[in-house]
Amino acid sequence: MNEPGAIPAAAPLLSVRGLCKHFPVLSRGFRRPSSEWVKAVDNVNFDIAQGETLGLVGESGCGKTTTARCALRAIDPTAGEVFFRLPDGRVVDLARLSAGELKPVRRHVQMIFQDPVSSLNPRMTVRDIVGEPLVIHGLARGDELETRVAEVLARVGLKPEHRTRYPHAFSGGQRQRIGIARAIIMRPSLIVCDEATSALDVSVQAQVLDLLKELQREFRLTYLFVAHNLDVVRNFCDRVAVMRKGRIVELAPTPQIFAAPQHAYTRILLSAVPSPDPDVKMNFNVGEELAKLDAAE
């Protein structure tokens, strides 16, 4: 990688510029006029190159998930641009597209959810869940649909005969694999993983991360990886963006973030991670230090 936080050399796959998402704070009373705004995402900028994995870390409520969802237009951003490069070379602004223009672009941008229980419709069979993207975009039907679903299930480590079952018959790790199968069946170029492994236990987490890495190599996938687990980020991401209160405070290649954090907040965040080495003292004063940081601003 080049300069910390700089735009990657090649034209980026995704380029987020000045992204903002403000929520109104409704006051009391009948008309409930909103006089204040919560700046969940405030002027966020970052780029992701093709085939790269960008980690987005920060404490709970710092706006990581809102940023990811705005970038995907799952929610409409208040301001800013989200430039996405389509496989044919055209660049579109996801933040500005109309609903009709957005649909063909959805093929290339997918999401893996945090909660493997609620992200799968309990009333649909695995075949219907995984095959739905192909049906929506009219890419396959009948026998071809069936074969492609079976293929993708095999690719994520499930059995083809699982197709007729309902999500409640699977374990958490298997459900997350179903979610991954749904995300990759259309061969997208960008996948946003919204805390994709944080609901899983540690051993399953490792398996799912390995699977994501294999898929990245195989299909040249690009990941925007939202996480709060710094160990996962350290092993998985090429670059890391640290968010705090809706802003990115530091964006640098992973080794650099962990070896030489520049921002005070990043240092506090890193010091809060328990180390397996008994000689490394754990920081128990995180709250205090954060308060100091707040006061300094």
């Binding site: 997918q110 945090q114 309990p122 739905e132």
Partner: peptide, 26 residues
């Protein structure tokens, strides 16, 4: 507000499809 409704929207499903295929059967 369930994730699977969001997932369907992100797949490009139409409002009718989300309403009748995902929400109503629930």
């Amino acid at each position: 507000e369930e994730d699977y409704a969001t997932a369907a929207r992100l797949l490009g499903a139409s409002h009718t499809r989300i309403l009748f295929r995902h929400l109503l059967p629930g």
